[in-house]
Design a protein around this nucleic acid. Structure first.
Length: 801
RNA sequence: GCGGAUGUGGCGGAAUGGCAGACGCAUCAGACUCAAAAUCUGACGGGGGCAACCUCGUGUGGGUUCAAGUCCCACCAUCCGCACCA
């Protein structure tokens, strides 16, 4: 009898062996086919690993281990996204330097990950807070600056009242801070911005060249929000200046009955003296400014506004005079901050017109303007529209744009919802922005040879109420000389957002200790693009978009060899608590992976997280489910007792084994880990039924199971004296011909209902099959047989009246 | 409102248009045990029948097909994004 399965002992043992043998190091052998598997590196928080982390890590570990056995040179690295606010806040509260906090957290995370037996190449570990790493983050920033893609701008930003820090648009969720949930207000500040909008078109168009799951592509497209329309200039009565608007429906120009400018529109101040109801306008503007963005959208249904008394616009297509209103349903930040209103064919304009009694002119037939705006662009025909009358919407769009261009009052224009990336943070624990502010020369980049520009030592990291970074108080760091003219100057004191370091980390894994470049061109050429990148859906419009932007920029600069960083992107579902709710301390449903490893073993945790359900859907934790997976591994362990000394597959098990190899091989590549494991469970059930199995029956199971449960399989391999290690062996092949049973049981239907079944040789002829079937269901048939259907190996259907 | 996803036993979940419920959990019965746990064996969608068997059944209502959980149309519910983007 075998000894009992003791994961505590064998897991530590094999983790040590793999480390000593450098089992999973990616090599510099560029002649081999490569496979770069990537998972999002964690933020090493003080809470330690969450049971959500192992789900994606195990999934790609399975793929990585399988690919190694298939002869690939595999790069599967891990590192730390360690800059960021929680660490800094913890440091402030406990008076410990963030560097120390980070170091401790990383040590804990690393220990936890190693206890799970991942095949990460730990020699390539990176840490975004390491000066040798952020040297290159700063280097990329300098490149962006020199290319004109980093600029400083005085603009209203999202200010988190609790973090005392500016946020990117992507970090504001429902008007509150994504991280801490506190209110976000608008604050005008001078901020570093990155011109991601310059890449908007390419960020959409190149999605066609990569293999991302559809919902990621859709989210990115929606976030970038490209729309095609036209800019049109309306003249203002008795004024030189024109009022420019953006519209996606230039075809409805004859239906314009009024115009609207946003409360922040510069024309208001400009024509201050001529606006007769200026007091009213100012009052409205102040009211609008007081509303947070959140309120402005929450109260969306209820339109407000004031007509400007003293300014009148003229419709360029028919010369009609139309009133101009101010309303906060028009945003200064999109298009031109002014619109033409066509209430008959736009819901918002329709509501506004109804509320203020403005005229509604139908220019597209098909709707009822008394009841609702008619917005269907596919079916309508133009009416009341001069030379456009009778055209389809599509034709009218083209015709009117041509007309606008001809008359010089408009042109085709595409717009994006995407805004430039607010890149400044007024906090300590981030990469310093390597720029010097010179009174004479303006913003001057520091010389590349000065990199890394290291963070100064600070006594007190408290954020300041005036919105300045804590670094600003370190005068001997701030005060410097201008790299350009040598005059006294000051360093930029804002730091970069957490998204900076994570925008390019996958490049550094390729060549993590290079001092000359962020990575060598040869290595980049070999390893890029990442073959398979898995990460959370919550990063779709943040990290994933930002890193694609940086990568495209580096491609334009000739630093990287391909325009897209990730060939394939998949996403895992969340792991929820036993009660189906998100795990959180306050709900008291948090599961600690350490406890599971302790009580059941790492292999059980890995197996369970893969077996829990469809990989891309959310799944609820179940301690009973964990037990079931441990039971499975116990049964695998005890198989050693029924192994005989024969070789080759057992005759009765051969078909099943070939079927299982086929199923597991494909399921591991297609995120169907749960059914792959189920197939192995079914296989060992058959092994036990057989009572005795050969050395090869057992051997093949160990190889198939190894990527999921590497420790137990390695131990059994060693016990059985198969020679070498499982990780060094080859992935098993299957013979397609042997995946089919010689005799198959075929269901028999009469008029589409199952009435029986019959066992037949797999290559039986249709005639023989039907004949055999008729005997089985003879009493259910009539003489009038209309149709006989035989699907080989599947079903027989006899249709009769 | 727009976009995306999901809906199958008591539960997690399987099913290239071809015998719905694989695999696992829970439950029940039996074996082992003084006993319990562990382990092993068996049963396990609903209704009817002693039984062979019959019948209903994949959110709802229609449709296509010899055959629909799967395809088409129209709904309902839940979850997740986005949300006055002109």
């Amino acid at each position: 009898m075998s000894q009992s399965y003791n994961p505590k002992v064998i897991e530590k043992k094999w983790q040590q062996v793999w480390q000593d043998e450098k089992a999973f190091a990616a090599t510099e052998d560029y002649s081999k086919p490569k496979f770069y598997a990537l998972v999002e590196f964690p933020y090493p928080s003080g809470q330690g690993l969450h049971v959500g982390h192992p789900r994606p890590y195990t999934a790609l570990d399975i793929v990585a281990r399988k690919r190694r056995m298939q002869g690939y040179n595999v790069l599967y690295p891990m590192g730390w996204d360690a800059f960021g606010l929680p660490t800094e806040n913890y440091a402030i509260k406990n008076k410990i330097h963030p560097r120390i906090v980070t170091k401790n957290n990383v040590a804990r995370f690393k220990g936890q990950l190693q206890a799970l037996g991942y095949s990460f190449d730990w020699d390539r570990e990176v840490n975004t807070t390491d000066p040798n790493y952020y040297k290159w983050t700063q280097w990329i920033f300098l490149k962006l600056f020199k290319a004109g893609l980093a600029y400083k701008s005085e603009m209203p930003i999202n200010w988190c009242t609790s973090c005392k820090c500016g946020l990117a648009n992507e970090e504001v969720v429902n008007g509150v801070c994504e991280r801490c949930g506190s209110e976000v207000v608008r604050k005008v500040k001078s901020q570093w911005m990155l011109k991601i909008t310059a890449y908007a078109d390419r960020l959409i168009d190149d999605l066609d060249t990569v293999d991302y799951i559809e919902r990621v592509k859709v989210s990115q497209k929606n976030w970038i929000g490209r729309s095609n329309g036209a800019e049109v200039e309306f003249s203002i009565k008795d004024k030189e200046e024109k009022l420019k608007i953006y519209t996606t429906r230039p075809d409805t120009l004859f239906g314009v009955t009024y115009m609207v400018v946003s409360p922040e529109h510069p024309y208001l101040d400009k024509y201050k003296d001529e606006i007769k109801n200026w007091d009213e306008i100012i009052a409205y503007r102040e009211l609008a400014a007081k509303k947070s963005d959140f309120e402005r959208t929450e109260l969306a249904k209820d339109k407000t506004g004031v007509q400007i008394d003293g300014l009148t616009a003229i419709n360029p297509v028919n010369g009609e005079e139309i009133p101009i209103w101010v309303s906060d349903y028009v945003l200064m930040s999109y298009g031109t901050g002014a619109i033409m209103a066509v209430p008959a064919h736009d819901e918002r304009d329709w509501e506004f017109a109804k509320k203020f009694g403005l005229p509604i002119i139908e220019v597209i037939a098909g709707g009822n303007a008394d009841e609702a705006a008619f917005t269907d662009v596919a079916t309508g025909t133009l009416v009341n529209s001069g030379f456009l009358t009778g055209m389809s919407v599509a034709d009218a769009k083209e015709a009117i744009i041509n007309w606008l261009v001809e008359k010089g009052v408009g042109e085709a224009k595409r717009n994006f919802k995407l805004r430039d990336w607010v890149f400044s943070r007024q906090r300590y624990w981030g990469e310093p922005i390597p720029i010097v502010k010179c009174p004479k020369c303006g913003f001057v980049p520091i010389d590349e040879s000065e990199l890394p520009l290291e963070l100064p030592e600070v006594e007190n990291y408290e954020p300041t109420d005036n919105g300045e970074s804590p670094i600003a108080k370190i005068r001997d760091w701030v005060e410097t000389t201008c790299p350009c003219c040598g005059s006294p100057a000051e360093r930029e004191t804002d730091t970069m957002p957490q998204w900076a370091g994570s925008s390019w980390y996958f490049l550094r894994y390729i060549d993590p200790t290079n001092d000359e470049a962020l990575a060598s061109p040869e290595a980049l050429k070999y390893w890029l693009p990442v073959d398979w990148y898995n990460g959370g859906m919550e990063h779709t419009t943040l990290h994933l978009l930002y890193s694609r932007f940086w990568h495209k920029f580096l491609y334009d600069e000739g630093v990287v060899p391909c325009p897209e960083p990730y060939q394939k992107r998949t996403s895992h579902g969340m792991i929820l608590g036993e009660n189906g709710e998100k795990m959180s301390k306050s709900r008291g449903n948090v599961v600690n992976p350490d406890d599971i490893v302790n009580d059941y073993g790492a292999d059980t945790l890995r197996t369970y997280e893969m077996f829990i359900g469809a990989f891309d859907l959310a799944a609820s934790w179940s301690e009973d489910g964990v037990k079931g997976c441990r039971r499975f591994l116990d049964r695998v362990w005890k198989l050693q007792d029924i192994v005989n000394d024969k070789t080759g597959y057992s005759k009765d098990l051969e078909t099943k084994i070939h079927q299982t190899i086929k199923k597991v091989s494909s399921d591991f590549e297609t995120l169907k880990y749960n059914t792959g494991i189920a197939a192995m469970m079914a296989l060992i059930n058959d092994y036990y039924k057989a009572g005795s199995i050969t050395r090869d029956d057992f051997n093949v199971l160990l190889v198939l199971l190894n990527p999921v449960a590497p420790h137990i399989t390695e131990e059994l391999w060693s016990i059985m004296n198969y020679g070498g290690r499982v990780y060094q062996t080859s992935w098993p092949e299957y013979d397609e011909a042997k995946t089919v049973e010689n005799t198959v049981e075929i269901g028999i239907q009469v008029n589409g209902k199952i009435r029986g079944s019959v066992k037949l040789p797999k290559d039986v002829s249709k005639e023989d099959a039907i004949k055999a079937a008729k005997e089985v269901v003879a009493d259910k048939l009539t003489d009038n047989i209309i149709k006989e259907i035989y699907v080989p190996g599947k079903i027989i259907n006899i249709v009769c009246k």
